[in-house]
Design a protein around this nucleic acid. Structure first.
Lengths: 345, 345
DNA sequence: CTGAAAGCGCTTACAG
DNA sequence: CTGAAAGCGCTTACAG
């Protein structure tokens, strides 16, 4: 690797000057500037990023924390909704970080998996900040990161502090919209499939549904609220269970599109038609939602804004701004064929 | 941040000794060892990783190259098969890298997007090696990485050199198995949906299918081979096109599960039943494949082995081994309900 | 406008 | 077994 020393020698200047020319800081005579630039180009010089991080006491790096690393899903099957949904968010995180000249890093952590070890790993790597994607709301890294004053943006998890804020979808509104949609179609009794209890959004959505029901002078039947994992299999099982117990509902509101696909299978196996017998809605609007049969009514979240705004907020935190307000991104009902008029009794 | 100097002072030894105790290198008296360990623990000391990388001239970091960063899919929609499929592979890459104590890094590259700039980015970050996931076979970074002698393992892309090797699924065998399965069901004319021409696996699969057909004394009709993107939408469009042209086939072999879902929709819209009128198979065995209706016959690839073996090979390359043989992972037919006996004419 | 010197926090020959 | 010193490749006060 070429060093700044070689460039300096070739250009007949000091390393100080090379550094200044390349970083664009300080007054430099145009003639020297040209000489240095030419020398650097001819040698194919680029500054050693590690050395820069060392001297600056901070690397131009953003740590990326993902659900699936932490939750010990090592042997779980593919198909967690979150993965499919957040994959796209991830893409925009990468893009936006790259545009800002930041590397993305997933640190290894040999020393146990305590939240402290995670924070320590970020500190010893001198990361500028962290983006944490879809952590469980009980993840102990959330308070640890906030307390350590590492600039952090949480996506779909709630964490706030002087140097931390979050971005999330408006689940309350999303659930309200679906519920209103179903009420308008004449449905009076609906079942709700929410995610695991460690996830706050299930509760938010339930709240949104309750709002809509209350506005219509109705209330939620607790016996029709079911919890399951975000994936197809667990939703399938929970739906089979529900169907074996009772069938006094005409619609099911699923917590994710993949859950809806699992539920759809359980309905099919019982010979129930969607939406003829039961209306069904998802959440997320995966591309898949429009391809399955029947096309799935669902709630769209803005994945682009989610990824981009997370990095934009983080950059502001890195630059020292404090106490940034969280972003709550709008959600939108996408009505397709899986919801229809309530069957007349 | 605590430095080794503070630990040294507290323990009453030199930084040299602190370093040796913590790295476990060199003879150290038991008593001194204890003192240092206690001092480090009480101060919460961990070595600065950036400084270590600096002095070692190499960071304990693996660069991770992903399809979607390079291909400029910024505005594409969600649903590229690759993403869903490789997401799981990615998980095992992360796991295996973390076990070996390596960070994963996605470098930003502001200076144009030439293959040279990519290589340079890895070099200036002193990465130990790179894992490149599902690059297009024409990606110029493949030769660039090989030539730069950066230890690299390609996954589902072919690249070889003294310090580079690859891991891929056995697409030939997978396609042969599906084709044989369909032949056994009495199908005589089948259509093939392969991926983009820049992707070699489409060709491999075609070759596998040809092998099976040849063994049965049959040959491939070039007019029944269609190219499209790996996603639902493009496969849907290509299938609609094919169906508008001709219908003298009884089975469709899709290049991925998501393509199969797109094709399924096109068939449905024409009132064709699967497998009554047309048998349909996918590739990948996403969990989804068993949930859609009808359950999708497909080819399973071993994602766990794909991720894990890639890192294991890379670690050997990093340690200096050369010219490692590529891993070709077995594929396995998973027969479900979407394939059935050929309709009698 | 330019440079000599110090220093970022480690590790590693080299001595003893 | 232990330590003083050099050095990894930069950047940044401090001088001039």
């Amino acid at each position: 690797m070429v060093t700044s020393d070689e460039v300096a020698r070739l250009a007949g200047v000091s390393r100080t000057t090379v550094s200044r020319v390349l970083s664009g800081s300080g007054r430099i005579s145009e003639e020297v500037r040209q000489r240095v630039l030419e020398a650097a180009a001819s040698l194919g010089y680029e500054p050693n990023v590690v050395a820069q991080s060392m001297v600056r006491q901070r690397s131009r790096t953003i740590a990326l924390g993902l659900f699936h690393v932490e939750e010990g899903l090592s042997f779980s099957r593919l198909g967690e909704t979150k993965h499919y949904f957040y994959l796209d968010v991830l893409k925009y995180i990468e893009e936006e970080a790259a545009n800002a000249g930041y590397d993305l890093l997933q640190p290894s952590r040999p020393l146990g998996r305590t939240p402290e070890s995670y924070v320590r790993a970020l500190q010893t790597r001198q990361v500028a900040g962290a983006v944490m994607l879809a952590l469980s709301s009980t993840d102990p890294r959330i308070p640890a990161l906030i307390q350590a004053h590492i600039p952090t943006v949480f996506i779909d998890a709630v964490g706030q502090g002087p140097g931390a804020t979050y971005v999330k979808g408006d689940h309350v509104s999303g659930a309200r919209q679906v519920t209103e949609h179903l009420l308008a179609l004449g449905h009076k009794r609906m079942a709700f499939f929410v995610g695991p209890s460690s996830n706050m959004f299930g509760m938010e959505r339930l709240f949104g549904a309750q709002q809509a029901l209350a506005s219509a002078g109705r209330s939620l039947d607790p016996g029709l609220v079911r919890q399951s994992g975000w994936n197809m299999q667990q939703a399938y099982e929970a739906a089979a269970q529900l169907l074996s117990e009772r069938r006094d509902f005409t619609a099911i509101i699923a917590g994710s599109d993949l859950m809806a696909i699992g539920i759809l299978r359980a309905l099919r196996e019982r010979g129930l038609h969607v939406p003829g017998d039961v209306s069904l809605s998802g959440f997320d609007d995966l591309e898949l939602a429009s391809y399955i049969d029947p096309g799935l009514t669902t709630v769209r979240q803005d994945r682009v804004a989610m990824g981009r705004s997370a990095i934009q907020l983080l950059l502001r935190l890195i630059q020292g701004e404090q106490h940034l307000a969280p972003f709550v991104l709008p959600t939108q009902l996408i009505a397709r064929q899986s919801t229809g008029p309530a069957p007349s009794v």
